[in-house]
Amino acid sequence: MKGVPESDFLRLFVRHETSLRSYARVLMPSWEAVDELMQEASVVMWRKLGQLEDADGFLPWAKVILRFEGLRIRRDFSRDRHDFSEDVLTLLAEEAAEVSEDIWEMEREALERCLTSFAPHHRELLLAPYRGEGRVSKIADTTARSVNSLYKLLGRLREKLLTCVETRLQESTAL
């Protein structure tokens, strides 16, 4: 019998959560918006689970739902600041969905390895924006540097990290 039982839904969702969050980040302007999208989309996925023929098709199917829910949520965003047009978001969503899961995973794995090559205080700064509001300011306080100079350093470190990731990816594809 084809189909995915409801009891398997949570297992599939948890297994693919990292991939789905990465894809959602392409569509949404902040992590708070990603959380909102994941919540809304999970409800839709649950409701439409009957459309899914087998568990292997879960990830691409879930990405389609994320895309449509993401566009819907962004339409409702406050208009007090600029937001990307629906055309641009659709292009981003479609092209991102065409990238194989292997590539997404290779990139994340390369980043994890590259992070280990940074000095501990640089790694701390790279991760600071994801450890709660005010973390960069706290580092500025303890290191007697200005927040502005730390953000500039953070920008340079992020570029260095990206270069490291790209080098690793080129090496692995050359093998």
Binding site: F84, E107, R108, Y130, R131
Partner: peptide
């Protein structure tokens, strides 16, 4: 830039993915 350049969109996607990995690493 994103509207007019496939290269920009591709690089944007990769940066979003790495952003996601950085957040996981922080966690």
């Amino acid at each position: 830039i994103l509207a007019g350049s496939a290269a920009a969109r591709s690089d944007f996607r990769r940066r979003c993915n790495l952003e996601s990995a950085l957040r996981s690493a922080a966690a």
